[in-house]
Amino acid sequence: MTDRLPFVRIRSEDTTPEAAFRKWQAVLPQYSIRLPDGHDIRDFDMDASAWLLEPLVVMAGRTRAAWVDRLPSSEAKGEQTNLVFALFCEGRWKGEAEGRPFDFGDGELIGLDTSRASTGLSTDSHWIMINVPRRALAKLVPAIPDLHGHVFRSASAGFLIDHMMSLERHLPTLSTAEAERITRASLTLIAAALDELAARKETNQASTPPAIRNRVERYIQQNLSSPALTPDMISKDLEIARSTLYRAFAELGGVSAFIQERRLEAARAILFHPEDHRTIGDIANVLGFDNTATFSKAFHRRFGCSPRVARATGTTRIPLSGRQLFDFWTDVLGDAKPPE
């Protein structure tokens, strides 16, 4: 008998709507998933499967409308983070990814970085997603462009979309012997879509001298403790047009997002320092946050844990390879029924 790919499945008809929803939440602990106001959980319905195509995890299914907020899942935007390519075959998803608004659906594809926050409301949807460890693309795409919240509409993305729909059809019967070839094809198409995105970004940014961004970055670092540090303040003090300022930081999610990122990175460094015993409130104040609650919420959204937990454990890392992610789902869904 031919070995099939490892898989898991959540299906409402195998249990109850409430139990299916709770399992969905349990297998995605770095998401906050909730129903829209006025929706009764007793009406919830889903049928979703996931296959391990090492090192990728491919997910496909249908779910009712829901808020899906992504919480950060690792300590940095480096090798340990995962990228997600989400195709909505039917339905729409509207929200924002670190200040970058998105609104897409009906055959469109979005990219997300699991180390960064996003929030969005999806309608009743049929979707396909590929979870890709960043390191799996290292040889194909040495410099991965900022895809977080980017809706792909290029020709290369069209080929990837067709491939993802083909994966949904064929993965239930794909043998492990064939898996390596399909994985290579998937990574090649993902790399092509990213290459086209990188080329377009380079063209768009050619009119912004690197010296401008370097100058702004130094100014931001020197004024992190100022609650008044805003794009308006930077534009005025450095005599840089707002349009030029925004264009210089577009690839990083915007000026405000960059300021927030630098403040949170500085906070993490303080929390990890063995001889720095300032309180959480003191750290929030010295880095320009309005109050401790605002700081703690922002820190949790960025790193996936509270400042107190980060200080106590000395880490915010939650690395998940494709295998680790899939094994976790298997443990949570041990009684889930396989696809028919």
Rank of each mutant, 00 (worst) to 15 (best):
D146A: 06
A138H: 12
P133H: 14
Q25L: 09
A185M: 13
M59W: 04
G322I: 05
G304I: 00
E79D: 11
A65V: 01
V57A: 05
G111P: 02
S32G: 11
E13S: 14
R311M: 08
S225M: 11
I280T: 14
L147C: 10
L167M: 09
P142W: 15
T244R: 14
M46C: 05
D103E: 11
F104K: 01
E75R: 09
G254Y: 03
S118C: 08
G99M: 03
S166N: 11
S256G: 15
L137Y: 06
G61H: 01
F303K: 04
L287H: 06
D69M: 08
K77M: 13
N291Q: 13
L174Y: 03
W51N: 05
I234R: 00
A298I: 06
A284F: 05
P17G: 03
A185W: 07
L325R: 08
L147V: 05
A267R: 06
G254R: 02
R278Q: 10
T183A: 15
L197F: 04
A117E: 10
Q205F: 10
I280D: 11
P231W: 12
L174D: 02
E180D: 15
D47I: 00
L325P: 02
R42G: 13
R116Q: 13
G304V: 06
L187D: 05
G334F: 09
D232G: 12
T81L: 12
M1K: 14
E217K: 08
A267E: 10
V309G: 02
F258G: 00
A193R: 05
L224S: 07
N214V: 04
A241M: 10
F249W: 06
F152C: 02
T203V: 14
R262Y: 09
E251Y: 06
I161S: 02
A157I: 00
A26M: 11
A86S: 14
S306R: 08
P6Y: 10
E180L: 13
A284I: 04
I280E: 08
F152L: 07
Y219E: 08
